[in-house]
């Protein structure tokens, strides 16, 4: 290897400046160990740069004692330092801000949920009230209809009086012959015992021929106790008997509650 040419190339100056690649550094180091001239050259370059730097130094007021002291303190506090981190304020502020924001969000969510449930309660109340109004309207409608029905000029009113089994019972039949309908007002009848049902009969008197018109189903559930039944018969009287659930083929006359004849 031509040592002089190597020195003249300027690579050693760059080596001192720290501008070579890792590979080149290793190479220069190897050559320097091999050739004392190269090592000498490197040291002289370094000395020149050192000298230049020295002239522009701000006088170096820190003597080594300052450094020594810091090193000693570091040694003493090394164990303590493990727990003592640099306070990174932006880290803390950042986290604090996120936590605050999270709390704010949770609070707002809770508020929102509260309002929502209040709205829900009010909605439910409103719905209940609307239903009540609707029920009332329907009930009024029914009553009107009922009233209109029994006021119809084609209606024949047949009062049915209490019989032996239940002398205090009474009922009324509103018979619309044209429409072949009978409305039974059963308000005056006691509630039938369990397993029994009232059955309404159309009667022909001569000879006595009963024809079933139907049952007063769900008696206890019907509030106004008015039942509509079809009656295509030429009835001369109406009777109501208490029959076993499901009704009977022919009336059980011992259980005749009310009876009334159609006035001609």
């Amino acid at each position: 290897m031509d040592v002089q040419a190597y020195i003249a190339s300027g690579i050693l100056e760059l080596y001192v400046a720290g501008l070579l690649s890792e590979e080149q550094n290793l190479e220069v180091h190897g050559h320097a160990l091999e050739h004392p001239e190269i090592m000498d050259e490197i040291e002289q370059i370094e000395a020149a740069v050192l000298a230049l730097g020295k002239t522009i130094s701000p006088g170096l007021p820190h003597n080594f004692e300052v450094i020594r002291e810091i090193i000693d303190i570091q040694k003493e506090t090394k164990v303590v330092e493990l727990g003592k981190k640099d306070i990174n304020w932006s880290w803390y502020i950042g986290w604090a801000a996120s936590v605050l924001m999270a709390i704010g969000l949770v609070w707002m969510y809770a508020q929102n949920e509260g309002l929502k449930s209040q709205i829900q309660v009010v909605e439910n109340e409103k719905q209940t009230l609307e239903e009540q109004i609707n029920d009332a309207n329907t009930s009024l409608e029914k009553s009107k209809e009922l009233l209109n029905t029994i006021r119809d000029k084609n209606i024949t009113v047949v009062p049915l009086g209490g019989q032996e089994v239940s002398p205090t019972s009474y009922a009324k039949a509103y018979w619309n012959k044209q429409e072949q309908k009978v409305f039974i007002d059963a308000k005056g009848l006691p509630e039938p015992p369990d397993g029994f049902v009232y059955q309404v009969w159309s009667l022909k008197l001569n000879p006595l021929t009963p024809t079933s018109m139907g049952l007063l189903e769900d008696f206890d559930l019907d509030e106004n106790k008015i039942f509509a039944l079809n009656n295509p018969n030429e009835s001369e009287a109406f009777g109501i008997t208490l029959e076993p659930a499901g009704g009977s083929e022919s009336p059980t006359l011992e259980q005749l509650y009310t009876l009334g004849a159609v006035s001609s």
Binding site: L50, L52, G53, K54, S57, P58, H62
Partner: peptide, 20 residues
């Protein structure tokens, strides 16, 4: 090296106290 290194730092920061 210290004096020289301080000098190099001073060429960059241009402030004696800061360089020290």
């Amino acid at each position: 090296y210290a004096e020289n290194i301080c000098g190099v730092i001073n060429t960059i920061v241009r402030n004696d106290a800061l360089a020290q």
